[in-house]
Design a binder for these strands. Structure first.
Length: 416
RNA sequence: GGAGGGGUGGCCGAGCGGUCAAUGGCAGCAGACUGUAAAUCUGCCGGGGUAACCCUACGUUGGUUCAAAUCCAACCCCCUCCA
């Protein structure tokens, strides 16, 4: 089709959010008729979402910004099943307490990206446990199970891949797609929700929902998926050395979050600016055209914008300033991550390798020794030659010690 | 219930009585080169220890042996086929 007329779909197309859509023209037409309701589901598998989900959150944000109503669906019910999509084996069962705790952690992040309330374009949050938990098995099978054929279910990747790899797929997991389809139909019935979005791996689950809605409610529903993002060198988004890039500040500090974006590969800068910031496309075009070292400026803007959305203006500014002092001036910034050691211990002297362990820069004495022996350990910006070198109060500068592991990881140590 | 195959370090995957903390690949870390990028090259990559060396580890538990990831027994789990 030609370029979409609706503002939402224009944004989605221009900025790279579009992977597949069940019926782009019809959805465009529907959006032209007035505000619509769309949802994205988030299962409560961890205490925080990570940047892998950020594209979905931005989609909801654009949806709201372009005059529509977003629904955030918390998968309180479906998390008890476990989505087999893209997994080689069943995830361990999460207890109800874990799920409740995870949901509480995840919910907080949405308030930063969406405005909630009762207005026509205000976002709302619902929990599919509200309807899934009370389903009656036989009734459900008769009303909904008859719309699914095993023949067709076996053709979906989530099922097919497991079977082809001869990995077990339990009946519990096999039901996941049915429940997700039911969610969509239910959200149509309750809130006239007409669109489900999600990552491309959710395509099968989404299509099932579209079809189920048509069969049981005669509703015209739509699905739209975003591409699975990898970095230019092929790594999945959101993973780093120390684990996932969490969106919650208590799981990953705004400083580390800023650093993650600052270290974006050159080739990804333009793509990420379009997806994860709201800068005008013309400005992004200029930034991504920067060559050589100049593109670092674009990375700083990327880091600043993304951090501002996730953690606020102040946190973003502080991270930028800390980075400037630390990396560009080589000066000491008081806002670097800080750990404390007992003043008495420091006065007595602590071996360098032990201090690196205490500072959390490495996880074992052996690793600390290796780091230092290989020339990757510095104290107050001076290389440490001997892992056993004692460090004491005499090394304090302005009341702190600055420890560095490698080129990028800095920690301040304060006696207390 | 029967027959066969399999469970090895974060992952994949060799090993099949000693020379095995266990080949190789991926991931990760450090150094060089750079731009807090990528690619490349070099080193490292279970824990403790300056080191000698010690401890833990090859599904679980016992056993054989001077010596077991490797052999035996029982058990647990997974896969395939049959009933």
């Amino acid at each position: 089709m030609t370029s979409p007329r609706s503002e939402f779909l224009q944004v989605v197309a221009e900025r790279g959010f579009m992977h597949q859509c069940t019926d782009l023209e019809a959805l465009d037409k529907r959006l032209g008729e007035g505000p619509a309701v769309a949802y994205i589901g988030f299962d409560a598998t961890a205490q925080s979402l990570h940047v892998g989900s950020l594209m979905q959150i931005m989609l909801l944000r654009w949806w709201q910004k372009t005059g529509n109503k977003p629904i955030v669906l918390m998968g309180g019910g479906t998390t008890r099943i476990g989505d087999p999509t893209g997994k080689d084996e069943a995830r361990k069962m999460l207890s109800d307490e874990d799920i409740a705790r995870n949901m509480a952690g995840i919910q907080t992040v949405f308030a930063k990206y969406l405005s909630f309330g009762d207005g026509p374009t205000d976002s709302m949050m619902v929990n599919n446990a509200d309807w899934l938990d009370q389903l009656n098995y036989i009734s459900f099978l008769r009303d909904y199970g008859r719309h699914f054929t095993i023949n067709r279910m076996m053709t979906f990747d989530s099922v097919k891949l497991r079977l082809e790899r001869e990995q077990p797929l339990t009946f519990l997991e096999f039901n996941y797609m049915i429940l997700q389809a039911y969610d969509f139909a239910e959200l149509w019935a309750r809130n006239k929700c007409v669109l489900q979005m999600g990552g491309s791996d959710q395509w099968g689950n989404i299509v099932n929902g579209v079809e189920l809605g048509r069969r049981v409610h005669g509703a015209e529903l739509f699905g739209l998926t975003s591409p699975l993002l990898t970095t230019s060198s092929g790594a999945k988004m959101g993973k780093t050395a120390n684990g996932a890039v969490w969106l919650n500040a208590d799981m990953l500090s705004p400083w580390d979050f800023w650093q993650y974006w600052r270290n974006t590969e050159d080739a990804d800068v333009g793509r990420f600016l379009k997806l994860y910031t709201e800068l005008p496309l013309a400005e992004i075009a200029k930034l991504e055209a920067l060559q050589g070292a100049a593109i670092n400026e674009a990375k700083k803007i990327l880091a600043g914008e993304v951090t501002r959305l996730a953690h606020g203006e102040a946190a973003a500014a502080e991270a930028a300033e800390t980075a400037r002092k630390t990396f560009e001036e080589g000066a000491l910034s008081a806002n670097l991550p800080t750990v404390s050691v007992a003043a008495g211990d420091l006065a007595a002297g602590i071996t360098a390798f032990a201090l690196f362990v205490q500072a959390g820069l490495v996880t074992s004495n052996g690793e600390a020794r290796r780091l230092i022996q290989q020339g990757g350990g510095r104290l107050n910006d001076q290389p440490i030659k001997d892992p056993a070198q004692p460090i004491s109060s005499a090394d304090l500068k302005d009341g702190v010690l600055k420890l560095t592991a490698g080129k990028k990881r800095h920690v301040l140590v304060r006696p207390e």
